[in-house]
Simulated assay, not measured.
Amino acid sequence: MLTWLTRDSLTFPPLEKALHDPNGLLAAGGDLSAERLVRAYRHGCFPWYQDGQPILWWSPDPRTVLFPDELHVSRSLAKLMRQGRYQVSFDSDFRAVIDACAAPRDYADGTWITDNMRDAYCQLHQRGIAHSVEVRQDGELVGGLYGLAMGQLFFGESMFSRADNASKVGFVTLVEHLRTAGFVLIDCQMPTNHLHSLGARAISRARFAEYLRQHLDQPNSATWVS
């Protein structure tokens, strides 16, 4: 039975209570307060829903992740990065990145990044928890991504690209930055061919939960330059 959350309680059900069909649906309801969002990621779930739906919380099994040491950079992508066609920054325009991620896409109907969700993650950014990667070409924003950094784990949320391989350049730059700073895992949530091409793979939900237990409260040395 699906658990319905109230605004008064920040407690999520055990991950093992998630439904098998649809895979990973754990709870519904609640709100998108900064406190609840942080609690959700620490617990191992994330919000994902459409406008007009209640807030839905997910913890799929298996979970798609990328270990920084397993990052795969193709020869063509490495060559592109050496050319310096794109300039990459961190946290220089979080709102622009999340707005671009929420924009309509040719291959999808609508967007799951609602106005309320954008506002909620901007609050997390103001608290130093959510971070963005900006990819620019000649000063124009052409790609990027955003997510949450907690302990030695980074929880990726969404990315966009308006130029060839721009989001990949941003992602690779981020992974290399996180690896240097002592991060051990990047949560990619759901599988895509785009992420698999970069080295992401599936692990069990139980193993993912173990990484949460071991690394959420461990220090990292990441710096996020505005």
Rank of each mutant, 00 (worst) to 15 (best):
G182M: 10
S92F: 10
A222E: 05
W4P: 00
G144E: 01
L185M: 14
K168I: 03
S161C: 06
K168Y: 11
R63L: 04
W57K: 09
D115V: 13
P219A: 00
A108W: 11
V65F: 09
G29K: 07
F46K: 15
R201A: 01
F154W: 14
V73P: 00
V73A: 01
V225N: 13
H194E: 03
S76K: 02
G110R: 14
V135T: 12
G144M: 05
D115S: 13
S221H: 00
T223G: 04
A78N: 14
Y107H: 12
P191Y: 11
L124D: 01
G139H: 12
L153R: 07
D109C: 02
F90Q: 10
G52I: 06
S204L: 13
L124F: 02
S197T: 07
D51C: 05
A209Q: 06
V73F: 01
I203H: 07
H72P: 00
D119Y: 01
S132H: 14
E176R: 15
Q83V: 05
A166N: 07
D187N: 15
N165P: 00
D31S: 03
V175H: 01
G128C: 02
A130V: 05
H43Q: 04
G128S: 04
V65W: 10
Y41A: 13
F160K: 15
E157I: 03
Y107Q: 09
R118K: 15
A149K: 09
I98G: 10
A27C: 05
L195A: 12
K168Q: 10
Q137K: 14
C101M: 03
T111D: 04
Q50C: 02
R136N: 08
G170M: 00
Q214K: 12
T192G: 02
A27S: 03
E157K: 08
Y41C: 13
Q218E: 14
D187H: 14
V135R: 14
F183R: 15
P47I: 06
L198E: 02
Y211F: 14
I98A: 10
A27W: 13
F183E: 11
A166L: 08
V175F: 00
R42D: 00
E157Q: 06
T6Y: 02
F94G: 03
S221A: 04
S76Q: 00
A181P: 04
D99I: 11
R213G: 01
I55T: 00
W58V: 03
L212W: 13
D99Y: 15
L198H: 06
R82N: 11
I129Q: 03
A18G: 04
A200E: 01
W224R: 10
A202F: 08
I203L: 06
F12N: 03
M117C: 11
D138N: 15
R7I: 06
Q152T: 05
Q137G: 04
C188R: 15
R127T: 05
N116L: 12
L71T: 12
R95T: 00
